[in-house]
Design a protein around this nucleic acid. Sequence first.
RNA 1: GCCCCCAUCGGCUAGCGGCCUAGGCCACCGCCCUUUCACGGCGGCUACACGGGUUCGAAUCCCGUUGGGGGUACCA
Length: 481
Amino acid sequence: MSVRVRFAPSPTGFLHVGGVRTALYVWLFARHHGGTAVLRIEDTDTEREESGAIEQIQRSLDWLGLDFDESPRVGGPYGPYLQSERSERYQTVIERLLAQGDAYQCYQTADELELARAEARQTDDPALPTRLHRDLTADQIAAFERAGRSAVIRFRTPLEGETVLDDLVRGRVVFEHRLLGDTVLMRAGGRPTYQLANPLDDLEMGITHVIRGEDLLSSTPRQKLLIEALGGTFPETAHLSMILGADKKRLSKRHGAASVEEFRDAGYLPEALVNFLALCGWSWDGETELMSVAELIERFSLERVNSAPAVFDHEKLAWMNGQYLRGLDMAAYTAALRGYLADAGSPLADAARLEELVPLVQDKIGTFGEFDALVGSLLEQREPDAESWQKLLNDDHAARILAAAVTALDRLTVFDAETLESALRGVCEELEMKPRQAFGPIRIAITGSTVAAGLYESIAFLGRGASLARLKHAHAAVTGV
RNA sequence: GCCCCCAUCGGCUAGCGGCCUAGGCCACCGCCCUUUCACGGCGGCUACACGGGUUCGAAUCCCGUUGGGGGUACCA
């Protein structure tokens, strides 16, 4: 049987790293097995839905290169892929469950429920409050209806026995039925809950493997029972551990979880994020770190997914991004950089000589976000970094050095990095100074900062006129003229 | 409270009874390279949560404790 897996986010906001990791594993699993990756949007809770969230999720997946075979956008044979458009199916199933006696109306008010829950805390039957209306007589139902109460539909969970789950990453997990409670399948307003829509859609969409976060592990037995009541076979499951923040707390939207788009905006490459996330909870041989998407697809397996939670390691991601950046050829680097700058709204995106700067920065920066600080001043005239400039002004040798540099560079007819190097080394000899000492003021004069790309290359890029102008400007500032 | 999951260096992890005086990567600390910052190279630091078993032998299996996480919604 062909593998069919799904990623089923709810549109409550942006896609964060935990969600993406799940999406990635789902996608890798599908691709590895030559199966089908489905994207389904679980928008059963209109209250929590955020407008634009679906588009944002789709955009993030696109950026990462996770193409889903069936989705709200591209459609597919099992659509619609928006739960809000599948209402009649849920209604049909509810009627069937009611007729079978596997579901029933529950008329409890919120207050009654809360009271019952408070009382139940003292007993050894925590699920009791959920089944108070499980055996209502026809008269009682009629009375509630006459009183104008509306009912939710609950699943009649077996009171005895247990459900065993053989999870692909967690192994055997056993749940006692008496602790499960009677799940609400349909809200009073007639809209389904996740507990109904999710497993039912999995069944109807022919999903073979459910790959999702561990936060959904405890709802699994209820879903399995429901599917079995419907005569269906519950899919295999793989529950992934949570991704934690530096404080070991679960990463979530309200807990410092970065959205995919934040990584894009910070200058990360999608390939790097994918590689990194793949390794966040999975490993191939424990040694190999850098893997292309094709390699990930070939090597990915649920068996090698780690069951322990993982702390999101920003440092390592940054390192990995640098590895990817350094591996790009000049054309690809330029294109990616230009794209990044354009997205960031930087005027440098249109710079004609952008490509010439690639050799100056490629080995130095870990994200495109660092590009501007390093060489931005070579592309446009800017105010120097205040701290660096102060350092220049405080340097007793600055005036001599800058004067000598102006003289030396003024003589040059060829203005390439090599010529500049020998000329500047000549300056050092003339002044009897170490390059370390002499180049500081020159760098600040040229780039406006103590931290910059290679000095000779920077000067060469700037060109004779601009370089001399900057050196003279700095000289004037230092001598107070 | 109750239920479920998890537990190897600071972080990500390898390890599925002897190959482990525990390997790789990131970070960190030295040194080298060097025009700053980086990159790169070399070296170093540091871990099997604890207590009981099982076994000739345990990081690896079992039980307990502790700690962390998740769930306990007419959220997903």
